[in-house]
Design a protein around this nucleic acid. Structure first.
Length: 271
DNA sequence: ACGAAGCCCTGCAAGC
DNA sequence: TGCTTGCAGGGCTTCG
């Protein structure tokens, strides 16, 4: 389940091997993804050079001279550089041949990911057009969270996981950030104070940044490796810790479901 | 406009 | 041991 830090880490990991390189061949072994991979993609990409790689939310945008293709890792996707001669593993669904007998491979067991040709204005694409701000953008702060939340009855956890509020906050980081902010996840978004949103916004940015920094330590393993997710290396405070003692107060961590997602919190520390 | 639920899919763990 | 069942989850889509 790649969260934003893994997508950013992936981008940084593959960039040196992909930027300025010509994609000589595209092999689609499985086209059934979130949306089927169109034959157009292969035709548009083969023989062209990658000029830019951007991340928007959890999407990666690959810029060629005549347009962009966009890739999402879904829940189980990974993207890595490998030698063309290395055996194709299960779920290595798409392969981009690069110079020097290297390849960029897209592996995705659950196929919740996507790969789309989006033409010359990717940011105008339907999937990106109405997304909220990046967490690292200036416009994302406590003030934004507070103002946008007025009148919203939904749980604050669902609110911060909504891509219209801010992008890139997945289930794990939503749980962790709410714990670190002392906010109970089921509380209505409109009932959170400005001060609490200031704290929450800062913590979201800090947690994502820390995770990207840790992810960066695995970059050297990207050739032939898989880029270990950053969050496995950090100590999770509540996520996956149902009934275990809170690291702060020893109270058992509670597990509930909000918006069909596992939600963990400390009933003592979060109000 | 909002919010909740449904759906896509495979791997893994638990239960029998 | 080998089956069946349930759960996990990002995010688009549909329904109320």
């Amino acid at each position: 389940m790649p969260e934003l830090p893994e997508v950013e880490t992936t981008k940084r990991g593959i960039s040196p091997h992909v930027l300025g390189k010509k994609i000589t061949k595209v092999i689609v072994r499985e086209s059934r993804f979130r949306w089927p991979i169109s034959p157009e993609l292969q035709a548009q990409v083969e023989g062209y050079t990658v000029r830019t790689i951007e991340r928007r939310a959890k999407y990666l945008l690959f810029g060629l001279d005549h347009g962009y293709f966009m890739l999402h890792l879904g829940m189980s996707g990974s993207l890595f550089i490998t030698k063309q001669s290395n055996p194709v593993q299960k779920h290595d669904h798409v392969e981009f041949y690069l110079p020097n007998k290297l390849s960029l491979r897209f592996n995705d067991p659950r196929r919740f990911g996507s790969l789309l040709w989006v033409g010359s204005s990717p940011h105008e694409h339907e999937l990106l057009l109405r997304l909220g701000p990046e967490p690292f953008a200036n416009e994302f702060n406590g003030d934004w969270l507070f103002k946008k939340s007025r009148g919203k009855k939904c749980a604050v956890k669902n609110y911060i996981m909504d891509n219209h509020t801010v992008v890139g906050v997945g289930n794990i980081y939503a749980n962790e950030a709410l714990f670190l902010s002392g906010i109970r996840p089921g509380k209505a978004a409109r009932r959170i104070s400005r001060a609490q949103y200031n704290s929450l916004a800062t913590i979201i940015v800090d947690v994502l940044n820390a995770s990207i920094d840790m992810g960066g330590t695995t970059l050297k393993d990207f050739v032939g490796g898989d880029g270990k997710p950053g969050y496995f290396q950090q100590t999770l405070q509540v996520y996956g810790r149902a009934n275990k003692p809170c690291r702060t107060c020893q109270s058992p961590i509670k597990l509930i479901r909000l918006g069909q997602r596992s939600t963990y919190y400390c009933p003592q520390c979060q109000n």
